[in-house]
Structure formats: structure tokens, C-alpha cells
């Protein structure tokens, strides 16, 4: 998946009205709550076949960190 496509998908996963950028801090998003984290977990599982844990999501800060978690599944 292209990075740009992931950022658009992320907007939908978080149910956010504004665009997401790789440099954005997740803590700054009003929508970055436990619901969103669970939605991210199922999105990664369904689309990338990657199982991530809630603890992993607690340790990351930037949208870029999410992209890193997808490894080779997201490219430029």
C-alpha cells in the first residue's frame, strides 16, 4: 500500500474529519482514544495480516510510527 493511501484510510479508521499527515502527533488527535486503537488493531490484522497489541500502540507517538509498524506493507 502507498503511504498516501494509508493516510487516507487512517482518516476513516479514526473517523476523523481532517487529513492525517505522517508527521502528526497521535496524542494531538482528539480521536486517539481506546476505540481508535482497537480500530487500528483490526485494520492492521485485516489489511496487513499484522497483529499488534494495545501496549504497542501505547508506546508510539507519531503517525509515522504507525507506518513503521506496517513494515514493508506500506511503501512510498
Amino acid at each position: 500500500m502507498k503511504k498516501a493511501d494509508f493516510l487516507v484510510a487512517l482518516e476513516d479508521v479514526l473517523q476523523r474529519d481532517e487529513a492525517c499527515n505522517a508527521e502528526d502527533m497521535l496524542e494531538d488527535y482528539e480521536e486517539w482514544d481506546s476505540l481508535s486503537k482497537m480500530a487500528i488493531m483490526s485494520y492492521f490484522d485485516k489489511n496487513f495480516g499484522i497483529k499488534i497489541t494495545l501496549n504497542q500502540l501505547k508506546e508510539i507517538h507519531q503517525v509515522n510510527d504507525l507506518i513503521q509498524m506496517a513494515g514493508s506493507k506500506i511503501d512510498d
Binding site: L35, M38, A39, M41, S42, D45, K46
Partner: peptide
């Protein structure tokens, strides 16, 4: 809904 869809997808 979130859990239902996550299980269904999986």
C-alpha cells in the same frame, strides 16, 4: 459493532 466486524473480518 467494532467487535462484530473485527471477528467477522478475521
Amino acid at each position: 459493532k467494532q467487535i462484530i466486524q473485527a471477528v467477522g473480518d478475521a
